[in-house]
Design a protein around this nucleic acid. Structure first.
Lengths: 171, 171
DNA sequence: TTATAATTGACACTTGTTTTCAGCCTCTGC
DNA sequence: GCAGAGGCTGAAAACAAGTGTCAATTATAA
């Protein structure tokens, strides 16, 4: 059971993505390359805002272009869109040979990746779902909590800095 | 391991919710009662739109009032807000002595409830999360798939009726 | 019944995302 | 290397979901 915090060890090849784009009749533009590199180098799944901000450091790019590029990438299985329990939507490269889930700090929004999941008991649960008549079942698992850093801060305060973000249903 | 499709067997008492509202200094209004009953009688977690539509059948109610009521209920642990992998946000009564997770059809959006979760393997995963320094850990699990009804329809078609809703990250 | 404080509806506003359209750029074929 | 076609981009506007404001209304305690 392994975990990372979470730069991918062997970065997805930009050239492979370029070929995938062209194979689908898309063009390889500077904007798409910048967005691809940002996603490849990211420590964690990124929001549209984060991508716009990072991309803006290396030249002008319109927010709309980022939306469109992400949509194109998503439709072509280059990136994965992940709506989280805190209501934000994040994007990451779909290099996922490795099956992983997300871990989100409810205080600071920091994300980590968990490169593990269920086990035997989990399989039984999946079986239950299939017995209910569901096919092509996928699962979506997210943990939320207070990360070590935020926990330390809290211990040194009488009042939290601000109202914690509501973290959706869970248990 | 039990599952339901998913009316609660012993409906949460409206009177109990009324008392909870009043205890928090809130007033018990016809609008709040209507929304409470709608949530209690729902077959599955509802979107704001669905609540507005259902509530409008028994009298006029403003969408803003629904938002505000749900927010008030959420703040007072009467309802739970659940953002799903398809990007929608749904609400359900927080009657949850029973720990459950959601099962969503990617085709028709129908929801079911799974009154079960991981098991021993799951506990190990939780342990990993805690070892990463996270406290107050909650988990959020959602299954998506093609339900029996939609599966049958698909088998009798060459083309899907419409583009399936993108169902977020999962695996 | 009355006073008062919370709730409501209407409207405007904010934020996040998509659409439209004209001009620009990548890529293919020559 | 060059030109044409079609895809991509930026700007502005449209759209959708959710929030803030305020006057009028209503539930509730006294």
């Amino acid at each position: 059971m392994k975990s990372r915090m979470c730069k991918s060890e062997e970065p997805t090849k930009i050239s492979a993505i370029r070929e995938a784009v062209k194979k689908r009749g898309g063009k390889w533009t500077p904007g798409r390359e910048r967005i691809t590199k940002i996603l490849r180098d990211a420590d964690s799944p990124l929001t549209v805002d984060q991508i716009v901000e990072l991309a803006s450091k290396t030249g002008r790019i319109d927010r709309v272009t980022v939306y469109r590029t992400l949509l194109f990438f998503e439709e072509n299985q280059i990136v994965v869109r992940t709506p989280l329990a805190d209501g934000t939507v994040r994007f990451e490269l779909d290099s996922a040979e490795t099956h992983h889930h997300h871990l989100l700090c409810r205080k600071c929004g920091k994300m980590a990746v968990l490169e593990a999941c269920g086990g035997k008991d989990w399989m039984k649960l999946l079986e239950t779902v299939k017995n209910m008549g569901f096919r092509e079942v996928r699962h979506f698992v997210e943990f939320t909590g207070i990360c070590a850093d935020c926990g330390d801060v809290l211990r040194n305060r009488t009042k939290p800095r601000k109202k914690p973000a509501s973290a959706g249903s869970s248990s």
